[in-house]
């Protein structure tokens, strides 16, 4: 009897020891992940959940949130007089700026990849703007494009051209922001450059022997090979376009200040001029931090999240037809 009890006790001990070891391992994993888990929960998870909750409330930061059901969403979709304009402007900036940025960054990268001399110099020159803080860069652009005193219009005048009003004109304010966006395209450009330099040389040689000229080599070798990078830059560009805020906010403030020549805080300068730079995130900011209508601002941000997610999924789904991953079986 005694011997059989000892025989069964031994495997039990071993099972227990194994369980303890597994638990210790799991605890270590959790411990090592803790900094990220805490940061993610505190600064992303919690605000996200709270935003969703607040979007169903009336909340002005002073009194506690009051549950109002879907009233915020109903107002957003059916009544808000400005949101239509904001959506239109946002779609405009995405439709115009993202393709231009991708094409421009690709073009510059292509030239840098082919250049024989001064590559390092030009690469630095084209990348440098990406390092400039957006606020400073925007200030500089508003100054450079000042319709009366800015160097661009002064130069144009010398050439006999009447320059546009740039940030002061409702029809030129968005193109001015696009110029600013193209100037700061260095990040995407560097990624494109790396991808282009990574295209295997023998593919070009083979295509050349098969009779392909420069444009055909671009179409049949370069573009398919770097297609994952094009997809990446389009997705990143669209998301950045949906969240387009800093440049629009600073440009509108500074340009309207230039126009009135006084820091008149009573004027609502967001979207200046004539709501032409009123993008969705600017409108969201206005509701949250000017009108302290946090419930409504939360509803707007939840909608923005859903839209950004949907668009990204659609782009990636659609990309399967034109993006080719090296080494992937399909």
């Amino acid at each position: 009897m005694a011997s059989s009890a000892a025989a069964t006790a031994q495997p039990l001990d071993r099972t227990r020891a194994r369980r303890r070891a597994a638990w210790r391992r799991r605890r270590l994993v959790l411990l090592l992940m803790a900094p990220w888990l805490i940061g993610f929960s505190a600064f992303f998870g919690y605000p996200l959940v709270m935003s969703v909750y607040l979007s169903f409330t009336h909340y002005d930061l002073l009194s506690s949130p009051k549950w109002i059901g879907t009233a915020n969403y109903r107002y957003l979709f059916t009544q808000d007089p400005q949101v239509g304009e904001a959506v239109k402007n946002t779609l405009w900036i995405i439709a115009v700026m993202v393709p231009l940025q991708v094409v421009f960054a690709f073009g510059v990268a292509l030239m840098l990849a082919r250049a024989r001399r001064g590559v390092g110099f030009f690469r630095t020159i084209f990348y440098l703007p990406a390092l400039a803080p957006p606020v400073a860069a925007t200030l500089a652009f508003v100054y450079i494009l000042n319709p009366a005193t800015g160097p661009v219009n002064v130069l144009l005048k010398h050439l006999g051209i009447d320059g546009p009003l740039w940030f002061q004109s409702p029809s030129w304010s968005k193109p001015s922001l696009v110029l600013l966006g193209l100037w700061g395209v260095g990040n995407i450009m560097i990624i494109f450059l790396a991808a282009i330099l990574d295209v295997p040389r023998h593919l070009y040689e083979s295509a050349e022997l098969d009779g392909a000229g420069p444009l055909q080599r671009l179409r049949w070798v370069t573009l398919p090979t770097i297609s994952p990078v094009i997809l990446f830059s389009v997705v990143i560009g669209v998301i950045a376009g949906l969240q387009y805020f800093t440049q629009a906010y600073v440009a509108a403030n500074v340009a309207s200040g230039q126009a009135s020549q006084a820091g008149d805080q009573t004027v609502n300068n967001l979207g200046y001029p004539e709501a032409s730079t009123l993008f969705y995130p600017v409108e969201l900011y206005q509701h949250g931090f000017r009108y302290f209508n946090m419930g409504y601002a939360s509803a707007m941000s939840v909608l923005l999240l859903v839209v950004a997610f949907t668009i990204t999924v659609l782009i990636i789904r659609n990309s399967r037809r034109w993006v080719h991953y090296v080494g992937a079986a399909k």
Binding site: P200, H202, L203, E205, S206, E208, L209, D210, G211, A212, G213, W220, V221, P224
Partner: peptide, 16 residues
């Protein structure tokens, strides 16, 4: 190359 009417098989095949 494209005016020479030659075709080539590369060591690593150079397939697209």
């Amino acid at each position: 190359p494209k005016e020479r009417d030659v075709s080539m098989v590369f060591q690593n095949y150079a397939l697209y």
